[in-house]
Amino acid sequence: MHELPILRSIVGVALRHAVEAGASRVLAVDVKVGELRGLDAAWIQSYFDFVTEGTPAAGASLRLKESKALFRCRSCGATFPPGPHAGGDVACPHCSSKHVELASGNELLIESIDVV
């Protein structure tokens, strides 16, 4: 159910940028989605079609690009995927530092739009 406000936001941003660019139609919207978002591509497309109906983005294709979850080590800068960890803490596989942060995987970003 939270897909609907997300889609309204995506379409709203796309239309705003299209108007600012003096475009008459939006043909495609590129969105980067982190895998941790758990958004279902099929549902997203049908919500997109519903929300764009009657707007200059009607019939546009929504292209989702999934980004994988990655951690970044704050000590040595290395990035690494979350793997199975025996202990309680995540540690950098290169320098064993426990100062790590999520570097990607939870994005929800409109990258670009194609317009005419």
């Binding site: 941003v13 796309a14 940028h17 929800l108 970003l109 990258e111 670009s112 739009i113």
Partner: peptide, 8 residues
Amino acid sequence: TIDIKEAV
């Protein structure tokens, strides 16, 4: 193509 890079 218009670059946007805006968070949803």
